[in-house]
Each structure stands twice: as C-alpha cells, then as structure tokens.
C-alpha cells in the first residue's frame, strides 16, 4: 500500500477523545468522502487496488462525521475516478462523494448514484433461482429497489439483496 499519512496533533493531550487525524492535501487525484466506516479497503478493492499500480493512497478510517456519525475517507493521488467507477462505488458506499482534484483545486464533484440495473455483478442468494442454477446461460440481473438503505431485486426470483449482502459480495 502507498503512504498512509496519519499524525497526532502534537499540542493535544494523547487521549482518544481529543485525538485528531490529519491527511495532507493531494495535488492531483480523487478524494472519496462519506464512505461508511470500515469500508475504505472495500472501496480500494472496487477501484482495482490502485496502490498496486503505483498510485499513492491516503486513508483515514472511523473519523467523526456530522452526516454519518463515523466514516472513512480515501485519497488516491494521481488517479481520477471515472463516472463508471463512481456508479459501482455506490454499491458499497451509497452515500459516497468523489472530488476530482487538479493542482490542489476541486474541479469536479461526483456523487455515487446506484445504477438502476446491474448485469452479472451481483449473485442471487436464493439457491433455487434460475440465475444461480443456470448461471452459464442466465447471467444475473438486478433492479434497484431501494436507495436508502440500498436494495437490489433479482429479476428472476424477486429476492432482494440487502445493503449488507451487496457489500459482502463486492467487498
């Protein structure tokens, strides 16, 4: 993994309540904010583990958030997350926002929007669903059935996948 920049503010007492974690600004790349706490590594996997391709990663986990109580943040230096990646990101981090940074300035904001239809990405959890039993000729198809919490419904058997199930399949 690339450099993870975590620091304690030197003039604060060293107890957990007053600990602040800082991550330096990146000159170019993507800042993915509002990731549910604990999902940062899953996000990296979904992005194809950019650290394995030489990109520098900065990551903070389990920080306070007014919107989400606790959240993770991922910064990928030098890599701009595509719109397609943002859509897939929505499957494990449906409230995520992505800022594209160039020369230390945010030039684009992309919100994770779950795709209405997913083909061949998720697997149905019903063992008797035709998409499971005949998977070679019937690739899975899911329709978005809820955004908050995220839910997808199998086209063939109607079974709904919960946010947790979706996350565990992709994470």
């Amino acid at each position: 993994m690339g450099a993870m920049t975590l620091a304690r503010r030197g003039n604060l007492p060293q107890n957990d309540d007053q600990t602040t974690m800082l991550v330096r600004k990146i000159p170019d790349g993507s800042v993915i904010d509002h990731i549910a706490a604990g999902k940062a590594l899953s996000v990296l996997r979904l992005l194809g583990n950019p650290q394995e391709n030489g990109f520098t990663i900065a990551m903070v986990m389990n920080v306070s958030s007014s919107k989400m109580k606790r959240k993770d943040i991922v910064k990928v230096e030098g890599m701009e997350v595509s719109q397609e990646q943002v859509q897939r990101l929505a499957l494990i981090a449906p409230r995520a926002s992505v800022n594209i940074v160039r020369a230390y300035r945010v030039v684009a904001k992309r919100n994770a929007v779950p795709p209405r239809t997913l083909r061949g990405i998720l697997s149905c959890t019903a063992p008797t669903c035709v998409s499971v039993r005949e998977k070679d000729s019937a690739p899975s198809i899911f329709f978005l059935s809820g955004k908050s919490p995220l839910r997808y419904r199998c086209k063939y058997c109607g079974r709904e996948l919960t946010e947790k199930e979706i996350s565990s399949q992709l994470g």
């Binding site: 669903c129 035709v130 499971v132 039993r133 005949e134 070679d136 000729s137 019937a138 079974r159």
Partner: peptide, 27 residues
Amino acid sequence: LHDTTMMLEGYSDLIVMRHPSEGAALL
C-alpha cells in the same frame, strides 16, 4: 434450460413449462 428451450421453440407454437427454479419460465 437454454438449449432445451431453443429446441422446443423450433418444434412448437406454444410452450407450457414447469420448472423447480424460480424465474425459469421468464428465462
């Protein structure tokens, strides 16, 4: 099921199907 269906469509004008898998008739 895919190949069986492709045969049946060539031999008949309507297929009545029962199958143990949910979604088989839709497929």
